[in-house]
Design a protein around this nucleic acid. Structure first.
Lengths: 364, 364
DNA sequence: AGAACGTACTAATGCGCTTTAGTGAGTGTC
DNA sequence: GACACTCACTAAAGCGCATTAGTACGTTCT
């Protein structure tokens, strides 16, 4: 008699293998393999019998064995490079991941998810995953303007899909000098989305607008800033009237940026925030100073979430279907794994959900 | 000449194997294996040489091969069973995961992370992971009062650690009738934490207190509710003065619960919310009704986050070290994988960060 | 000097699966 | 009735590693 804990823990429940199936079905192991993988070489009868036995035994192919012989790990990877404290509140990633998995799990592909501190660690991790044969492909998020990852992945021959950009410029615009290396990409048209936001604010009468952007160096940050400038130019608004500042996406920097913006001699009548957390932080700064929203300051959040709906007033937000974007990315990765051509796929355009935080600017 | 995309994508860069190392170092494959795994049987000289060659080649053991021969997948699993829309804003999980990985990745153990819809799917996934040999162990989160998972995992013999509960009662208290199956557990003492919250509010003078709890059936929800009742009894507060209602953790239900609570004939002077999102939603409802916080209503949030700091007033919150909790859980899983004894480990007690949302109740 | 032992290595086996190369029985052909 | 040919299946090899059994050589003991 062993100790009770020991006894209960290490049950001998051995996992069934095709050998077990072969024995019970009275055929060879190879026949089992053929039967279970829809390969020709077995009769309908045998196939059915083998399937039944496998079912009974609750058999599932050992992922290790399959990976070793079949050269497929059955695994995709996703690395999130964020300093620990920036991991904050954003619902974005959990939603993205949930969308990704919806598609991957239908093909029985698991997702290896890792949070790391910085880009170098992320690159090192890709190398390790590649050398270990751990993943069949990866999803690259938070693309940068100068990004080492696509080049690295291409050189390793590790299939990958870039999520959210390094996008080619919109048709008609200038093509970027150094086109990104050959990786499939799914992206959203931030430029068009930004145009919509500006349309909304300009239409309400705003002429002095600030943009509290996210991290400099991120591709979509740059795209949004550039787009805002383009759209402002179209409407004859100069750099003093419409301008962007960058932050680290945190509530602290969002608040700080807001304070500086409001301290200006001629403060803007509207602020666009690049995420929900900063928008709420900014709204809080305004409230603290007794600045009524939207009477004296309009606020727009890029990315909707519960946050935007629980504040008072509720925040006008740019709503996008993040799980849907994740599904799109996963589908594209599957396509690449199946040997499909490199593509650049555009996700759904976000729409602006106008709520109570935007209105006409003060008359003066 | 193939198409440019094709050519660039499938680089022949073969992953190095121990055979390559053996050839270059002029020894047998087994010698390489011994050398790289710190096994006796090779001289210091050879060991060093093999190591150098492996380094040069950028070799990493194939996880599949190692798993197949060594019976270790080098992978842990974490499943999050949440309906998609509840995936909201909580920073809790990303932080927990980041703490877990800090510990696991030091041992080169990857984390398989999956979001599923419900508990049944989660159980099915455990079965599949087990049958596929995909994971060496799993971390079980959101333990329930009647939870099928520990039993399942124990019967499969899949090592596991329960994160956050099914805890035995505090020493001295009554032991639960059906002790949980033999799984290691890390938990936080919600009872003591709740006592602290009540201390704070009672000390300020509050005698009518509501508790907007999380999902019924979750172990920690029940623990908090039970603890609140116990602590209330100790102070002579009956069920009309102090009571809990359950929700699904969403901002919507948090707001709805708040409305109902404030509609009561004798509304409470303080509300405790089981997460940050609901607390902010509740604060917003109060603001919408013109109820000043904390002058007429005090608010406490369980779990701190950026949200609690960006609202106005900032919310008093129960702060816990979530990444630290994740690290603890991961360490415990490693201990179990190493064949250590089953244990129940208690995490750090959260502390109450008093901010502007709590104060003395109105004089009347 | 031969047995006994330890050291540093090589050879061989197996993990569970996929895949390629057989093999033997049945069918059709002239 | 010997020929090619197909069908349903089995045997065997190999994926990359860990591990066990074996081997050759040098040292020590008696």
């Amino acid at each position: 008699m062993t100790a009770p804990g020991e006894a209960a823990r290490r049950k001998p429940a051995r996992r069934p293998t095709i050998k077990d199936i072969a024995r019970r079905a009275g055929v060879s192991e190879s026949a089992v393999s053929f039967a279970l993988n829809d390969r020709p070489g077995v009769s309908q009868d045998t196939r059915a019998r083998v399937r039944r036995v496998a079912e009974e035994l609750g058999w599932q192919a050992s992922s290790a064995a399959r990976a070793l012989s079949g050269e497929r790990a059955g695994c995709a990877g996703l690395v999130l490079a964020r300093p620990a404290q920036t991991l904050g509140v954003e619902s974005f990633f959990l939603q993205l991941v949930s969308g990704i998995q919806e598609v991957l799990s239908a093909r029985k592909i698991a997702l290896l998810f890792q949070v790391v501190e910085d880009l170098d660690t992320e690159c090192a991790l890709y190398r390790r995953w590649w050398a270990e044969g751990r993943v069949d492909g990866v999803l690259v998020v938070d693309p940068r303007t100068e990004d080492p990852r696509p080049g690295l992945l291409a050189s390793l021959g590790l299939p990958a899909v870039v999520v959210g950009g390094l996008a080619t410029h919109p048709p008609g615009g200038p093509q970027p000098a150094a086109a990104h290396p050959p990786l499939s990409t799914v992206w959203a048209d931030d430029a068009k989305a930004m145009a919509r936001v500006l349309d909304h604010l300009y239409g309400l009468g705003h002429r002095r607008i600030a943009h509290v952007a996210g991290m400099p160096g991120l591709a979509h940050t740059e795209r949004r800033i550039r787009s805002l400038r383009t759209e402002a130019d179209l409407r004859g608004l100069d750099e003093r009237q419409v301008r962007s500042v960058t932050t680290d996406y945190s509530d602290a920097e969002g608040a700080e940026a807001t304070r500086r913006i409001l301290d200006a001699a001629e403060p803007p009548t509207a602020i666009i925030y690049d995420n929900d957390v900063m928008a709420v932080a900014g709204a809080s700064v305004a409230a603290g100073r007794g600045i009524p929203v939207p009477a004296r300051l309009s606020i727009v959040a890029w990315d909707d979430s519960a946050l935007c709906r629980v504040t008072h007033p509720r925040l006008t937000a740019l709503v996008r279907d993040t799980p849907g974007f994740g599904r799109l990315a996963a589908q594209e990765l599957l396509a690449v794994l199946d040997g499909g051509p490199l593509r650049t796929v555009e996700g759904e355009l976000p729409h602006l959900e106008a709520r109570e935080s935007t209105g006409a600017p003060p008359a003066g």
